[in-house]
């Protein structure tokens, strides 16, 4: 809920590039990144944006079959169809030599108080679908072929669970940052495949682990909100309420766009759209550099054997 005067104040401020917290239009908030605090998960990462947004991502790997089992009930078929829905929605999985990524976004009870329960579910579904679309596929960065154990039958499934702990605006950007951090942190047990008597078997070694190949190419997301005639980056909750339209752009290390999606009730002029795309690309690459620096620091901290004190103890970027 936002009053008319607040809306006016924010819109006029954005027009002269002065936002409520003193930032200019294209300034991103400070972010704090911690990895590896959930030891039960194969990988985890927490990202906090200065001002409230708190996202925790846990990655769990499991061995699964390349084609999920199809049962006789139609309802079950559809559930499986939903699970393996790729870009085209074709029910048969075309590539039988790839692993899968399943993303799920959930809101912790403490973050949900601001929204209606139905809106939360819609929002979580939308974000889950967006993530699934971006990460599954060659543009997602992760080397899905490397996740295959036995072509045609077994593969690794990465379950990415996103938990929104606190809402302070700009959830999707933080979610992607945390996901990329968690994938950097994830270790998969090594699977060795043996052929014996014509049967192919695989063995999982718990002690030896590998990193996820291609994690550096996972894109980061930049959400731009159109307020008045200008656009801003990294909106705070009140600014999100003022925005007439939103453009979400996923940018990867190479500067390519991995996804583009518009949201919001208003329209955007094509010229402004092109401008927003360019802005998003630049900011995305800056963010990637910031995150890579933070992850390197985290690696050093882990290598030095320092325990994560957990929650709010990591370095600021």
């Amino acid at each position: 809920m936002i009053s008319v005067s607040e809306r006016d104040y924010i819109t006029k401020g954005v027009d002269v590039s002065i936002r409520a917290d003193g930032r200019s239009r294209l300034d991103f908030r400070e972010l704090v990144l911690e990895t590896g605090m959930i030891t039960q998960a194969s990988g985890s990462c927490r990202v906090t944006l200065d001002g409230g947004t708190d996202i925790l991502v846990g990655v769990k790997v499991e061995v699964g079959s390349i084609e999920p089992e199809v049962e006789a009930e139609e309802a079950d078929i559809l559930e499986d169809m939903e699970q393996m829905d790729q870009d085209d929605g074709i029910t048969m999985v075309k590539d039988k030599d790839r692993g899968r990524i399943i993303c799920n976004v959930e809101c912790s009870p403490s973050a949900t108080r601001i929204f209606e329960p139905r809106d939360i579910e819609d929002m979580c579904n939308e974000y889950s679908q967006f993530m699934n679309r971006v990460l599954n596929g060659s543009h997602g960065g992760v080397d899905l072929k490397a996740l295959c154990i036995i072509p045609g039958s077994t593969c690794w499934i990465l379950n990415i669970d996103v938990l929104v702990l606190d809402y302070g605006g700009n959830l999707l950007d933080a979610i992607f940052m945390a996901t990329r951090g968690a994938l950097h942190n994830t270790r998969i047990p090594r699977a060795t495949v043996e052929q014996s008597d014509g049967r192919v078997e695989f063995d999982i070694a718990d002690e030896e682990t590998e990193i996820i190949r291609g994690w550096e190419d996972v894109p980061l997301c930049v959400s731009l909100n159109k307020i008045g005639y200008r656009h801003i980056v990294d909106a705070a909750p009140l600014e999100e309420l003022c925005s007439s339209a939103r453009l979400t752009v996923a940018v990867n290390r190479r500067g390519n766009l991995c996804a583009l999606q518009k949201g919001g009730h208003g329209g955007i002029e094509p010229s402004l759209l092109a401008e927003m795309v360019q802005t998003a690309k630049q900011i995305g690459q800056t963010l990637l550099k910031r995150q890579d620096a933070a992850l390197r620091e985290e690696e050093e901290r882990i290598a030095a054997g320092k325990d994560p004190i957990g929650f709010g103890a990591a370095s600021r970027h």
């Binding site: 971006v134 596929g137 766009l257 583009l260």
Partner: peptide, 8 residues
């Protein structure tokens, strides 16, 4: 709405 890895 766009999907796939494309240059700017």
């Amino acid at each position: 709405i766009q999907s796939g890895e494309i240059g700017t």
